[in-house]
């Protein structure tokens, strides 16, 4: 599914990623944990194609294709989805309108016919029920006046509707209370399938109680410094990141 090879990236001359190697196979769930400023979010933005970063070395293959050469919208149509840490508000644009525009844009890019209105409505209704997204939320402008939890649920709703093959979740648990965390996690788990892979970026272990990963990576100062099974997350929770930070410093 995804192969990241020796990825180096910088912003305005400042090195953020210093040689990331990461392979995610079909159906796998990988978690990346690490202290603030380790480059986790940068990695997610680079995967989605944000233009603020300069790739100085390395490559990213997505299903064998050179992802770095694709425009953000082409990546989305090819199946890359990013659940934002801070979802963006778009005043005046109704959520339903946004969803339909996005879905049809991707369908068109893939040469598929547009959704009929009844079909679209049915899909939204189903996904909204699972994620406890109210009709009222769907009527409001996208993310405008949404609570933190509502915004995150809306991200997962979009993920469910756009049916991507690689889902990157950037600190989706931040700002969620226990109930919201459960709802969001259930939404994510419902989407797990042998054809769909996940890259879950988080600071805390608690999300991984709900979304159980196959592989856990620890990232620090722009590198993956340790990789292990799901038990690695528990170890981190107990000991904190201090070891990794000091290891780097030493």
């Amino acid at each position: 599914m995804l192969e990241i090879k020796n990825l180096h990236a910088e912003v305005e001359g400042q090195k953020i990623l210093r040689g990331i190697d990461l392979t995610i196979r079909d159906g796998e769930v990988h978690a990346i944990m690490g202290p603030n400023g380790s480059g986790k979010s940068t990695l997610s933005y680079i995967l989605a194609g944000k233009s603020d970063y300069e790739i100085t070395e390395g490559e990213i293959l997505f299903n064998g294709e050179n992802l770095l050469e694709m425009e953000p919208d082409a990546r989305a149509a090819a199946g890359v989805f990013l659940a934002f840490q801070y979802p963006i508000e778009i005043p005046g644009v109704g959520t339903m309108n946004f969803l339909k525009t996005a879905m049809n844009a991707q369908r068109k890019a893939r040469g598929e016919p547009e959704l009929t209105t009844p079909d679209f409505m049915r899909r939204v209704k189903e996904a909204a029920q699972t994620l406890k997204v109210s009709q009222d939320m769907l009527k409001r402008p996208l993310n405008v006046g949404f609570s933190g939890g509502e915004k995150k649920r809306m991200e997962i709703l979009q993920m469910a509707l756009l049916t991507p093959s690689l889902c990157v979740l950037d600190e989706t648990d931040s700002g969620l209370d226990i109930d919201a965390l459960r709802i969001v996690s259930e939404g994510v788990n419902a989407l797990r399938s042998p054809e769909r892979s996940f890259l879950v970026i988080t600071h805390y272990q608690r999300l991984l109680d709900h979304i159980v990963p196959d592989v856990v990576h620890v990232m620090s100062k722009g590198r993956i410094v340790r990789t292990g099974g799901k038990e690695l997350a528990l170890e981190l929770e107990a000991k904190g990141y201090a070891d990794y930070v000091s290891e780097e410093a030493a």
Partner: peptide, 21 residues
């Protein structure tokens, strides 16, 4: 970027945002 990440082209994104405005 948010709109593009969801699969819209630049023109689609501008039209959507302006129509909202």
């Amino acid at each position: 970027f948010y709109c593009l990440q969801r699969g819209m082209s630049q023109e689609e994104a501008v039209a959507l945002i302006v129509n909202g405005f």
